[in-house]
């Protein structure tokens, strides 16, 4: 690959990566429903969704809703 093109590709990839991080950290929200009941979904920002996913706290039910797998205190670690 030619040097200038490689510099361009590298910079674009790094910037896209940082752009995704910024978007994920500040703008992206996930609608999370509580485990039980028909309560409205809570808009959860992605960092919080990441934390919940890291303890196995999110699942997708048959209707496509994203639900918490627990009520009250979140688990300490992922069960898998």
């Amino acid at each position: 690959m030619k040097s200038n093109r490689k510099i361009l590709v590298s910079i674009v990839l790094v910037m896209v990566g940082f752009g995704l991080v910024v978007y994920g950290a500040w703008f992206h929200v996930v609608n999370v429903h509580p485990k039980e009941g028909e309560a409205a979904a809570v808009e959860t920002r992605e960092p919080e969704a990441v934390r919940q996913a890291s303890v196995g706290g999110l699942e997708r039910d048959d209707s496509g809703k994203i639900k918490q797998t627990y009520t009250g205190e979140s688990p300490e670690a992922c069960a898998t």
């Binding site: 990566g17 940082f18 991080v21 992605e46 969704a49 990441v50 999110l58 997708r60 994203i66």
Partner: peptide, 21 residues
């Protein structure tokens, strides 16, 4: 985990892409 709930993991992909690039 995000694939399992059908959500795009922007943070994870962005982190790996930025650091990898």
């Amino acid at each position: 985990q995000f694939s399992a709930i059908h959500v795009v993991p922007f943070l994870a992909i962005g982190t790996v892409l930025a650091v990898g690039a």
